[in-house]
Design a protein around this nucleic acid. Structure first.
Lengths: 344, 344
DNA sequence: TTGAAAGCGGTACCAA
DNA sequence: TTGGTACCGCTTTCAA
């Protein structure tokens, strides 16, 4: 068989192919695609050519020419956490209608990995970037500021914001739960958290617990156990340690609903009644807390809306850049609410 | 204040800036970045300039010039499902070490949305694409085949594969669970599934249940309730319906561990003993099934490894393209296992 | 080992 | 309303 001479190096059809088939210039094709001025007849011919060839404009080439991409970055500590997944979903729902696509990065709760991902993903010149949490390496902050890309930090209140933010105070929310338990009559309130210093939100919750407890004149009963992400099994193991070290505990606040659930299940096995023997409260309002037995008292924080709001802030920042307006600084404090259920 | 004349239209530093600062040509910078031939002295000067300017190469421009991008697409029905999130994590862990970034799409269990996402994300000329499930619109298949991008379908066994695949037979796995229940002595086995025809894997599990039941000479007891994604509350509601319609049920297989958990919690409330009054089995081996009381008998399918394998198949296909080898067709059947716990 | 020129696939700008 | 040209930032190719 004789070597065929390929007319073109194969690959998907280009705008030039469409132009040729429609008998117009590339520019006219470009205009039709952008929905700009073109006669009805031309528009139709071009559209026919596009359909026939199955032409899809190259987003990268367009971005290079236009000067900006169509990406928004979402960085989460763990996509496996339904909480963060929900925030990503909210972000997606907010930005995809604007023609933007989501670049996802999972930092695995490592600030170094976060820095690496920021570097890598910044190379794609995203229109905006959502970060989870407010603890970042200096190099990350520096990179982000220098890149000038709109940033939204979420899930916490930054003491030193990179740009915009939307979140709530994990410390205050945990403190509110402590006061709630105190209001219910509990006095020997323990805390089950993770052992990892990297889980900044977990540390904040723990510190809120300690501050509130001290304010009430009570003594802390603390168990730090398990690496992030905190799981149900961590909760089960931690509650054993708690009951061992502090047998007089009448209530415990867990750093996450996952560990609260694990703790309650372990209590079942140990023959400890919940809430009679030990009241158990969680954090995050996971689905499991609503449906388990007993349902778990928790702090609800609405992760989906957090993501939606982050997306809206990014969109607004993008529009501001287009219109030459200064970036709207500051952030938004979102609420949390104590949901009292049968576990306390 | 006199109008300043901007030397450049601002923006991040370009390769030309690095070249100027280092006193070399763009090409030399490009070579240093690619780790190709360059004298040690030059290499050092260039690196110094890169560091000083904080230069990050533009990935889009590079992709345009090189002829291929650095993206892999992950399409899931719902990022909120810890199962699919785990697969995305596996895919990420497999491809990011190769310098690739994840473009995420959430189809919300809609084939039309999937088609839309495939269109949009194909415009970024990804190196590979992971799809969840094997049910797709014809237009989606057509688009993908025409684009010639390596595709891996996951979480099921395609009867008409688009390209490669890695998964297991949801029908067979459900049938195996039915046989397991039968082996435990149960004879009046019900099934709780979703009402949505869009959840193809759910339908497959249901059909596997029916086939196995028929083979055993037993009569089906079916409840279809709730839209995808199936939640814990769906399970609770469905089990009420089941016990109402088929009060003689001695066991039930749920389409997901989530609904199994919801069903068990509802049984607690109804005063139905599990497994004494009703044995409950799930599907998916979610964390909650391991730690709840009683622990749930389920089908384990290892979603993380599914993602890793999908990533490896894509990487291999990419390498094959580079080396001019034909795309390795076919797929990989992954295992599942019945995990017997106290709920049955 | 290094550099100059061309071109990847689009869009902005200006002219017709 | 349409087309030509330059150029976005990088890599490939070829020559020095």
């Amino acid at each position: 068989m004789p070597a065929e001479v390929p007319p073109r190096p194969a690959g998907p059809p280009r705008m030039a192919d469409v132009a040729r088939l429609a008998g117009v210039s590339k520019m006219t094709v470009s205009r039709v695609l952008a929905g700009r001025d073109a006669s009805a007849a031309t528009r139709q011919r071009v559209q026919a050519a596009i359909d026939e060839l199955g032409y899809l404009p190259d987003a990268g080439a367009g971005a290079l020419s236009r000067g900006h991409s169509e990406f928004v970055v979402a960085l989460v500590p763990s996509i496996m956490s339904s909480n963060f997944a929900d925030t990503v979903r909210g972000l997606g729902d907010a930005v995809t209608p604007h023609g933007l696509s989501l670049l996802l990065g999972d930092t695995h709760y490592h600030l170094e990995e976060e820095a690496r991902l920021v570097r890598t993903l910044l190379r794609h010149r995203p229109r905006g970037m959502m970060l989870t949490g407010t603890a970042h390496l200096d190099s990350t902050r520096h990179l982000l500021r220098q890149a000038g890309v709109p940033v939204v930090e979420t899930w916490d209140v930054p003491s030193e914001p990179i740009d915009q933010w939307v979140g709530f105070s994990n410390a205050e929310a945990a403190a509110a739960m402590v006061r709630h338990l105190h209001g219910q009559g509990y006095r020997r309130i323990g805390f089950i958290g993770g052992a990892s210093p990297l889980d900044h939100r977990g540390r904040q919750r723990q510190s809120g617990y300690q501050v509130a407890l001290t304010a009430l004149g009570l003594a802390p009963r603390l168990v730090e156990h398990g690496a992030s992400p905190i799981t149900m099994s961590h909760g089960g193991e931690a509650v054993r340690l708690l009951l061992q070290r502090y047998p007089d505990c009448d209530a415990v606040l867990c750093v996450s609903d996952l560990s609260a659930f694990g703790a309650i299940m372990e209590c079942h096995r140990l023959g400890v009644k919940v809430p009679g023997g030990l009241a158990v409260a969680g954090f995050g309002d996971f689905e499991v807390s609503r449906y388990c037995e007993p349902p778990i008292t928790t702090v609800a924080v609405d992760p989906y809306t957090l993501g939606v709001k982050a997306g809206e802030l990014l969109i607004r920042a993008m529009q501001g850049e287009r219109d030459g307006n200064p970036r709207p600084a500051g952030g938004e404090l979102t609420g949390y609410s104590i949901i009292s259920r049968a576990s306390t």
